[in-house]
Nucleic acid binder design. Structure first.
Lengths: 228, 228, 228, 228
DNA sequence: GATGAATGAGACTTCATTCAT
DNA sequence: CATGAATGAAGTCTCATTCAT
């Protein structure tokens, strides 16, 4: 297990509260994580349908049969890959938001830190991002995971929205809805990263996009008469 | 084989859309369009790999064998779906840009019209957009169509960039590169539409997003001290 | 038996070649010959199952539909190819045998001329021979054409056997049966040619094998104490 | 893929037959042999292209999928059938030749034993012979197996040729080349058997042909003035 | 008459899944 | 507990054959 993967894992540990009780359960959970890591890695090389259960088994160094003890189906393995990824990013995002809240940081500071956190996570998880562009997004859609995500990360999203809400209340920005601010943020972050991946620019430092994104949101949504 | 390949070429991987001369060729082209329409429609219902050639044949009301006279492979059918979509949006987009050029319209006017055109096209092609979200994007990636797109629409993109270029020169906006302006525009348009599709909001009037997108670009990229 | 079948019958499975009466019939017969020639040629390049009706149609410069007016099926085309080949060799063979008979030529002379005739024909019909090695033999077997051949060429074979018969009667050779002499002859001719084709030696002068073949038969079958 | 290819290699296109070490490997090898036997049997009933993978699977009492674990393709199954047959006959032939060498047997004795061995093997492998006549020969040709055969059995052929060579040196026979003696032998053996199979005479004792074949070679190639 | 667009049965092959060991 | 041999449904693609023009 390489460095990046381990980081990835520790990040995911802060997700939804599943603390496996027994020894067996812990073992199973560890094996599941290994399978997920292998499956994710394979996905950055070739599309979902070119990856067979046999491939995943081989990459994870388990037998095919055991994979079916760990997951009910191939689809579920990739559901788990997706959840692993989204859990991970939501965890770091939520951590950042909580820190901002605790420090009573100003709107632009919060925004900057949030955007920076997202971009940094994406850089550390290029395999996931690449796979995401290739397939995970579509799979996510097919598997109805967006609904699941809303339930699963509702609290985190609400905390993020609270930041936007107070910026709206303070008249720093104006926008038809809080959700829209989040959407714009997501659109910009994902859109810029997406372009680089599509262009094969895999070495760029995506965090450099943070100031521009913040500027677009902060000044683009600033009320007509200026912030002052 | 050579012959077959040549025939397919124009439809599947071809250059700018040609107007076929002969009667036969026109029939063939019409049938290809029918298949493309059927395939696109199916894709808004279920993912690429859940759609079989039989399904497409049935939907298009042709036999399986004939589909293979129209297209060399299943992959090529979806390549054609993608090209049909991108050709279509690029055509209307280019038309808008040319009109703006001809009228020497100002930067914000251009921007507004461009964004509006894109959103309007997306509304009129919801099936395509839905399929795109589901799979076309990933397919596009897998099939290496982004490179093709750059060649195919290079001229149109350059014309669009020229608008941003002159805005940069006039000091109305500042940005590290012209391409970045285009990327931001694309990210915002696509990101907002994407959210609605994911949320199942298929009835919304997406053109209502135009002013906000324009504002984000125009004011978000406006030079520090204002335009004056 | 419907009309179409009757028409085909004479060409595909028929008895001795008839001289078609009407203009139409003559035209059809000519077209059939053209198709046969094209099909035979294709067979020297690739195996039967890699040759499609479309290929034959293109090579013969007819439409697919018309091929089905000339022959009831693909199989029948190749039946006709086989019969064309066997008719041709049997014709020259029979001519040689008749000439020998007429001239009251001696056994070895007859043998030499017969063997020479066969080898010469094979050289002139290398495409057929190559196709034969590749597929025609197997097709012939599958289509039960050996029985047909026996009926079709019975008379010619009997004339050839008469030569061997008289050699047996004269005590020049001894053999359990006349047919065996023919079989040995066929085995040697076909076996030597076959080896060269398999070895890719397509330029050799096969008629050079004639003396050796004759010697094997004449001396190999000569009675123990010599002919005297 | 690499792994699968390697596994298949030994069975389908491999060098001299190996004795697999592990239990698994032995099982696999046994299953391959069963498939080969089933495929060979089917081929004596109907031609190659009328035999589907499903048919072979059913006859061998395996699933279709498992056949593809045993062999990479249908073609490879029949390559294996051919190699199985040729390996088998070459093995008994080589054994006979070695015995003759060891005993310093005379030319005619050697010849007789070699011919007898070939004919006896053919009687014991009628299904193979029938299939061979029907298709294997043509397949062999299409698959370029004659080249392979030359490499694979080169040593055995050289040992056989050595017998002919010494007969030539001793002046017992004269012939333009050693290979030609082998070709004549092959032509006679194969030609006579072929005739019986074509005629449907499947019950005949082919070994009865041995003396005649030997006589044709020995006396037909004997030098002009006699051996003394 | 002659064409070739259109058909659809069937071939080969893959791979998610199961279950005896 | 863990394995991987074995399964067979389903996918893509081909091509002999037909029939409206």
């Amino acid at each position: 297990m390489d460095d990046a993967t381990r980081k990835h894992h520790s990040a995911a540990a802060g997700g939804p509260p599943e603390t496996p009780a027994g020894r067996k359960e812990r073992e199973l959970a560890r094996h599941r994580r290994e399978v997920i890591a292998a499956a994710e890695k394979l996905l950055s090389d070739r599309p979902y349908h070119a990856i067979s259960i046999q491939d995943i088994a081989q990459a994870a160094e388990f037998s095919v049969g055991y994979l079916y003890k760990l997951f009910p189906s191939k689809e579920d393995i990739y559901k788990a890959v997706i959840l692993h990824g989204t859990d991970s990013i939501m965890a770091v995002l939520d951590e950042t938001v909580r820190a901002c809240e605790a420090e009573h940081a100003g709107f632009e500071t919060c925004l900057t830190r949030v955007v920076h956190t997202m971009l940094a996570w994406m850089m550390e998880n290029r395999a996931y991002i690449q796979g995401s562009l290739r397939d995970l997004e579509a799979l996510s859609f097919s598997m109805g995971m967006h609904q699941l995500a809303r339930r699963r990360y509702g609290a985190a999203f609400r905390r993020l929205d609270a930041i936007f809400q107070s910026a709206l209340r303070e008249g720093r920005i104006e926008c038809e809805s809080v959700e829209m601010v989040g959407s714009l943020l997501g659109a910009l972050v994902w859109g810029l990263v997406r372009k680089d991946v599509v262009d094969g620019e895999t070495e760029k430092d995506w965090t450099r996009y943070a100031p521009m994104i913040v500027r677009l949101i902060a000044r683009g949504l600033a009320p007509e008469g200026g912030t002052r």
